[in-house]
Design a protein around this nucleic acid. Structure first.
Lengths: 158, 158
DNA sequence: AAAAAATAGTTCCTATAGAAACTAAATAAG
DNA sequence: CTTATTTAGTTTCTATAGGAACTATTTTTT
């Protein structure tokens, strides 16, 4: 049954990402979701964004995002600014400490991935990307209903 | 940067699996890891296995496995049998209630996956499987160190 | 045989993840 | 203008996930 094989394999991938996040967190004090939040802020105007913007970028539930922001704030990597235009919302801003961490970010997963990807030809990387996209479509019911599976031609392209 | 794109996409997949597990849990009272544990037990001799065997099958940390077993026991879907040969270990056994749930298991994710996979040709499914395997290798450092990346010929086969 | 080391599983801790309820504020409707 | 609805974010809850410490038991070493 392909279904179970795929799930088992995907769980392997999930586990390796979790393990890597744990290692990074132990070594640098920030997890992958926290790091991605910091990076997102560093790319915004004035290094600030609302919790909703972060939530949308990371595609997380509001309560999860709230927890991540709280932990980042506790580590002084982000701070809060009031939004004069909307009292319901506050801005989350990158602190100098947060910016400094991004100067020399934990890159173990990036290095590992890049090293492995470098061993593949551009065509293989493209093909891998395409299959990941296919997987995203297969797993994501709403998107699939909205758009057809990418065609044979696109998959087969090399 | 391919690294970040891949991580973002994989997080999408992870999220859809988490969402599906939540839905299944709400509808049937068991999550995907719990369900996989029940299914594993149903395939063992006498419908029983040690926590370590379950742990190895699901590739989980012992503490996580312990929590899952406790929750299954609380729902009366599994029970514990003493192991006379080794007082450190107990057997986890499928209960009749657990077996009954497996007669009509939650199959929403399976159905969705199968329906989508059925739209692909066998060659595409094979290619997808191969790329998932490649991804498993890329993400899993230990295995990669132990064995080379699958070769171009294998990837390109269609 | 006794001591040391390893093992099976639990407990305690932290973080992520999502659902539901909640509060304060903003927006829309009447 | 008042009321109803929606929105932004927090809190509370549950489950998964992993690391470290722990306890009881088994195995290995001395």
């Amino acid at each position: 049954m392909k279904y179970l094989e795929i799930i088992v394999k995907l769980r392997k991938i999930i586990r390796s990402i979790n393990l890597e996040s744990k290692r990074i967190e132990k070594q640098f004090g920030v997890s992958i979701p926290q790091l991605m939040s910091l990076q997102y802020l560093s790319e915004q105007e004035d290094y600030k964004a609302t919790a909703s913007q972060l939530k949308a970028y990371l595609k997380l539930n509001a309560s999860t995002m709230s927890g991540i922001i709280s932990r980042l704030e506790q580590k002084s990597l982000v701070a809060r600014l009031r939004n004069p235009r909307d009292r319901r919302a506050t801005f989350i801003t990158l602190t100098a400490k947060g910016a400094e961490l991004l100067k020399d970010p934990p890159t173990t997963l990036q290095e590992k991935l890049t090293a492995r990807l470098n061993k593949l030809s551009p065509e293989r990387i493209e093909s891998l990307n395409m299959h990941i996209d296919l997987l995203v479509q297969i797993m994501d019911a709403d998107d699939l209903d909205a758009s057809p599976i990418i065609t044979t031609k696109e998959i087969g392209k090399k």
